[in-house]
Design a protein around this nucleic acid. Sequence first.
DNA 1: TAGATTGTTAATCGATTAACAATC
DNA 2: TAGATTGTTAATCGATTAACAATC
Lengths: 301, 301
Amino acid sequence: MPDHTPPRRRLADDSAEAPAIAASTPLPAASSGNGARPDPPWGASVDHDGLDGDTRDAFGPLDVRSDRRVPEATVARLPIYLRCLVEVADAKVVTISSERLAEMAGVNAAKVRKDLSYLGSYGTRGVGYDVEYLLVQISRVLGLTQDWPVVIVGIGNLGQALANYRGFAARGFRIAALVDADPSKVGESVGGLAVRSLDDLPEIVAGQNVAIGIIATPAGVAQDVADRLVAAGITSVLNFAPTVISVPPGVSIRKVDLSIELQILSFYQQRRESGRPVDDVPAGDLPTAGAPVEASEGLTL
Amino acid sequence: MPDHTPPRRRLADDSAEAPAIAASTPLPAASSGNGARPDPPWGASVDHDGLDGDTRDAFGPLDVRSDRRVPEATVARLPIYLRCLVEVADAKVVTISSERLAEMAGVNAAKVRKDLSYLGSYGTRGVGYDVEYLLVQISRVLGLTQDWPVVIVGIGNLGQALANYRGFAARGFRIAALVDADPSKVGESVGGLAVRSLDDLPEIVAGQNVAIGIIATPAGVAQDVADRLVAAGITSVLNFAPTVISVPPGVSIRKVDLSIELQILSFYQQRRESGRPVDDVPAGDLPTAGAPVEASEGLTL
DNA sequence: TAGATTGTTAATCGATTAACAATC
DNA sequence: TAGATTGTTAATCGATTAACAATC
């Protein structure tokens, strides 16, 4: 069986610029022993970007760019792989094949290999991927080796639920502050934090170096809140308000829209009920999965 | 200016099989007068599916299938368009151009036209789309002309927030029941509903004809809950638990994963901070939008 | 060596978008 | 008629996936 040797690394390394792996506990993985990651022979083979051939791509074959472009769809799947890896690491599994990882993540094995290949050559042919090592690499690529303070704006039902959500802290997203426009809410304690005024935003963002803002307000004020967040220096926004908001270039935005998800389900449900062909099962953010995952992580959502 | 006449309809109509437009109030739009929709001349031009040519598609040109295939990406955008239309309808605007709708939805105008063309020819050249009419058509396609009872499983922080979320009912998703496995929670009242036992699931689903289930439990029990939902007869699942769950074919599943969204933001944030080229701004479910939407709908999320 | 499994290629598919004829 | 705007085409782009040579 697999005579496991630490995987070689082929791509140019960008860890020089990347933040050092923090001693804090950014990942659940930290508790499952990621200090013991294999120590691969750095620079064993100093070759270029691996793109040799007719691939339609802007990189010339000599362009050793540390910032390999990672497709958007791949970025969105990396957190899933990470979660699966944490799970198998907790079970003390040392190596994992793309096949098994794919099964757990609910995707195609070829997709897993392709996705991971954007990060570098972290597998070993005939063996698989070293779980701990891959886990650390994905964490690094995702920027999870550092702590990200976040601010939540809008402390209604959802804001409070988010403030109490343990899964954020468990993944290195520390809630730095809760903010609300309603004076009657300011000062109230939620999840161990005192709610602060919307006017304190600039001070909070600057003082605690907050880069990520979460909008959990009613739709009507979401754009205004977004503007204030951006003005205060926030450059990543997660929007839960059921409205489209716009941000200037250079600011990232993602949205989570509860009603929209239900409406999408409604579409496919209706098709089924009216006896239509229902070509494909619908459309998760990720496909329907195929694995009997027996999840661990004691999250009390 | 636009001499507005009711838009013609070109595609084969499938309203024969589709549920009748309910008299209930499935949409906020109901309150803005959608009873007054224009009455287009049905069957004016009886033509086929419009797919004539070399498009790689399974439909033969003579195959008048009522169930036009709507691309997944389009389905995911229809709820956004709908929301924008409700907003302009409330402002008593009668027609809207693809350009304006695109601006509001934060997408490309060509995309709006292409998306809407999958539903039929509901616009009028030189004029635009009749707001109320388009609104009704999108609602119908999405299955929002009927009421969808939903059951929420897991009444923790998030489950309670969801139970109190007014946006669901406002869009025709009636919360039929709240369910939890914890006996100490059963009987408790949340958002005006008594929490029921997980064991009551079959009875609830059958008795109230529930098709959609929402999982808001910890990851560890999510798969088991999904299995029970499916066994009880649920065929659409919205999963908030941070784990991949699998369901049999014929059951739809979508997921909302809070931590994953933050991790994706972290990726792009890190790229920016480390002075990388940051080719593209990241990756919302929908793009970054471009419109100063001043939202209405008084949702108290 | 034989078996296993990666990393990459290339085919294919689906989604996006500019452009423009159709037509109000 | 002139201006506006749709609906559709076709080019392009990005994502998926089977297949297989490389190699452990």
